[in-house]
Amino acid sequence: MDISYDLFINAVIAGLLLGGFYAAVTIGVSISFGILDIVNIAHPAFIILGSYIAYILNTTFGLDPILASLIVLPLFYALGSAIYQVYYQSFERRGQEALRGLAFFFGLLFITEVLLILVFGVDYRYVEAAYIGPSLRLGVMDFPLRMLVPCLVSLALFGALHVYLSRTFIGRAIAAVSQDQLALQLMAADPIRIKRIAFAMSIATASIAGALLIVIQPIEPSVGREYIGRVFAICVLGGLGSLPGTLVAAMLLGLFESFTSTFYGPSWAPAVSFGFLLLTLAFRPAGLFGR
């Protein structure tokens, strides 16, 4: 096949930048699903909510979308905390998370999407920022800032969370929650409180991921659905809750998608991530680095 070197190298760059961004989108699910075993399929809907909030703050006050997402971070944290409280009281405590817990998150996903449609309609919305448009060029290599900035922010978020989870007391307690509830009690930590904090953090990341998303592409409410396949594919492939694994899996999917849309056309892109997910579940459910 006749693939030009330029096209190839730029597909790789685009894939890596996209993968970096996917890491930010997935990290919330890596915490909720991977560590806490809470199947929050509504996570992508919260990301879209984050995008719209960044959009409002950007268009009305001219705030930078990423800065805006940091400002509303506490709100998302509170939202996550509240959702976990309901989830725990209604399902987890009664051992009904399998059927009703899933239906609950599905309902939340749906409500969020429909509400956004009612308020904003189905037109595509976008934000203004200095880094949307220009590109950094190094020889034949092209780094669109619109992709580079989200990728870097995402990696920073990723690094910060990794340090937090491995170095701080609460961070380590969160990691322990999935493995050993007893040890956690011996550490005098209340598992429910730890899980609430962790879940709230996972939702908080949706605020930032949402802002990054609307920087990368114009959005409309149902865009979130495409991300369900992506985040869960990455999360499972990365080995459920392993942050380095998540990062590698995100890069892989980014590359995969970049190549598909460069060489086959964008109309196949959604099938790539979901097909990726189906194959992962079928053949590698323990993740890339699993047993």
Binding site: V39, L102, R225, I228, G229, F232, P270, L278, A282
Partner: peptide
Amino acid sequence: MGYLTLRLRGAFFAIATLALAVVLQTLVVN
């Protein structure tokens, strides 16, 4: 689809069904 995913925990099956919808839709669109 069940054969591929029903050996896993229920949550995986649920997620796989979401994926199935998108994969099939993409096939039909194309």
